[in-house]
């Protein structure tokens, strides 16, 4: 369960930064809590855990599962989780501004040629002629919360097309799906492993790709508490190394498909322990394969994309104007692009 002492550390955060480095590089079986969603996009962590890369790096990893991205950021800030992978949200930036969290690496990226996030419309809207993103002018675009990645994507699409969208906050992914299916909202954008089965049912239609509007979009990033980033360098490096190994295995097996059918099958079985675990393997498989988007080699971070996202959050007044890239990102750990 929760490591209580980390909670206490949060209150002392300001003071802790001034303390001399306490972390020692000689560590084994260091307890580490990793926040995750049960999505294929979090596969790198699952692979690193299952294939023992975390253990090799001397980390005793325990997963803590969440239902949405924003609560993970709060859990990192409160010390309930050490590392997590999720999209850049207004909440994450605000917490970074308060000196609680830091982005230390990149994970999922939109890449031309690899199936990425899809733009969906409801059947009613489709029948009414909304067959291209351009036709979405004045339509209801579903988002979970203001400042979520959905909000960013919708805004970027609207900007590129020169149209206006009405953003409808629905709090949870499940609620957005329900509202889209029943035609309460007109459009949404989501990762392919959710988009494709929905479109297959005929209740919604895919009318475009997010990658066409936001090229090289750094969808998710690896982040941790500011304390870990500043004072637990060895532990953080160990985590990123193991994570990168998991990412490399994943990319090779399912994105680049260079390691053959058998390895791909093994990889899908491994991920199935965490994703769609409630479905039989045969039904889960297409969802996992569909969701395979590239996870950056070496957890490299696309700072241009991060800068663009940060600028957008600022321009919308969702975060303070005073936030800088330095507050949000600690670029000393990974290669940046």
């Amino acid at each position: 369960m929760t490591d209580i002492s980390r909670r206490g550390a949060l209150g002392l955060l300001g003071g802790a930064a001034a303390l001399p480095m306490l972390g020692s590089p000689a560590f084994a079986n260091t307890k580490v809590t990793v926040g995750a969603l049960n999505f294929t996009s979090h596969a790198a962590s699952f692979v690193a855990f299952e294939r023992g890369y975390f253990a090799e790096a001397g980390l005793d990893v325990e997963f803590k599962f969440f239902q949405a991205a924003q609560p993970m950021a709060v859990a990192i800030a409160s010390g309930d989780a050490d590392y997590a992978v999720t999209s850049i949200t207004g909440g994450l930036i605000s917490l970074a501004e308060k000196g609680a969290t830091k982005v230390i690496g990149g994970a999922l990226t939109e890449e031309k040629g690899i199936d990425g996030q899809k733009i969906l419309v409801s059947d009613a809207a489709y029948q009414a002629g909304v067959t291209t993103p351009k036709a979405l002018d004045g339509k209801k675009f579903g988002i979970t919360q203001a400042g979520s990645s959905f909000h960013y994507m919708g805004a970027k699409i609207a900007q590129a097309e020169g149209i206006a969208l009405e953003f409808t906050p629905l709090q949870k992914v499940g609620a957005v799906i329900g509202a889209l299916k029943s035609g309460q909202i007109d459009a949404w954008s989501i990762v392919p492993h959710i988009a494709k089965p929905l479109a297959g049912s005929g209740a919604v239609h895919i009318i475009g790709n997010v990658a066409d509007y936001i090229p090289n979009y750094q969808v998710t990033t690896v982040f941790t508490s500011a304390n870990n980033a500043a004072n637990e360098r060895a532990k953080t490096e160990a985590f990123l190394k193991a994570f990168s190994k998991g990412a490399a295995d994943f990319n090779a097996a399912l994105v680049d498909k260079t390691t053959g059918e058998a390895d791909a099958e093994d990889m899908i079985k491994l991920i199935h322990k965490y994703v769609y675990a409630d479905k039989p393997y045969d039904k889960a498989k297409p969802g996992i394969v569909n969701g395979a988007m590239r996870i950056n080699e070496g957890a490299a971070l696309n700072t241009t994309s991060v800068q663009d996202q940060l600028d957008w959050f600022k321009s919308e007044g969702l975060v303070k104007d005073s936030v800088t890239m330095d507050m949000l990102v600690d670029s000393s750990y990974v290669q940046t692009m």
């Binding site: 950021a73 949200t89 909440g91 917490l95 919360q145 203001a146 400042g147």
Partner: peptide, 12 residues
């Protein structure tokens, strides 16, 4: 309410 929820999700 929407304002409060938004502030909460932005941790503002």
């Amino acid at each position: 309410g929407a304002y409060i929820l938004e502030a909460g999700s932005l941790y503002d």
